[in-house]
Amino acid sequence: MTMTMPDTAVAATAPLLEIRNLTKRFNAHGGGVVRAVENVSFSIGRGETFALVGESGCGKTTLTKLVLGLEKPTSGEILFHGADLATASSKAMHGYRRQAQAVFQDPYSSLNPRMRVSKIIAEPLMAHGIGDRDSQRARVLEMLDVVGLPKTAADLYPHEFSGGQRQRVAIARALSLKPAFMVLDEPISALDVSVRAQILNLLADIQDEFGLTYLIVAHDLALVEHFSSSVGVMYLGSMAELGPTESVFSHPKHPYTQALLASVPRPDPDHRAPVGVIYGEIGSAMAPPPGCKFHPRCPYAVDICKTTPPVDRELAPGQLVACHLAETIVPPVQSSIAPL
């Protein structure tokens, strides 16, 4: 199933990345199977920013690993420019790596402490045999400039930088191959509050400058609303709701999306999160509940939810909802947000 992106020129062209019925299962230590990702489908158009949200354990990190080719899917397809990664030859995979890069959450873990910044940024170029030493050096300096670091940064080690600066180095490295696609896994959540906006603005700027397509994983819904054009809400390995960010955030149709949105703490002393929207915690991916996986926590659950897994239904243009009752559920009244 292909999702059409509203009101953009790229809607007509084929998506850059298309995920079809993707499933990933792990064998757990001591027996049992972890169903990390189950039958997930979505697509990302060129120049779009697709956000994956959900609680820890919902499978969003596994999904990014699959997309980056760090894990092999159990079944399903990951089509990049129409070619399936799961069955790609190692040569085709190497070509894909030139196009798809990543920035991870923890800028302390994502830079090798024993390499100088120049080598960290040039490493992808070396891995693909692009350019000689001089041109690689030139690219390093160019990238440092793009991410707003001085040229002198090239000869320093990662520990000489603050968290925000390290994340700039990580972005420069991801950019050095001038890729078409970038995975951003919680790119700002490990940073100080006062530098988060710098990094977020930088990511927005380079997206415009280099025509990048983003897949961003985040737990901060305000950030997702701000930054993404489409969003997928995951719960226990499955996609609960999927669609253009604007319609999902203004008219959430899945009870889980509604609960998530209602729970976000807001910097407004007069806002009170409605208590008791949902109780309990996310279940185990080793023994997901039958039927709709969300039913044990869902305040609206009826008999059919306990037995039959819901299928995705398009309830608004581009907005797919996996809920039997989506049409009948009235979202809880959101307290309005007064301007500060």
């Binding site: 080719g69 760090l70 030139r98 994502s110 090798n112 402490p113 024993r114 490493e123 891995a127």
Partner: peptide, 25 residues
């Protein structure tokens, strides 16, 4: 460590990962 995963994403070979990212550490 993320930098090992990122080295794979960058397209580094297993030998490179051993020599450049694992051995020095």
């Amino acid at each position: 460590r993320d930098y090992v995963a990122l080295a794979k994403v960058a397209g580094c070979s297993t030998t490179t990962i051993f020599v450049r990212h694992l051995l020095p550490n």
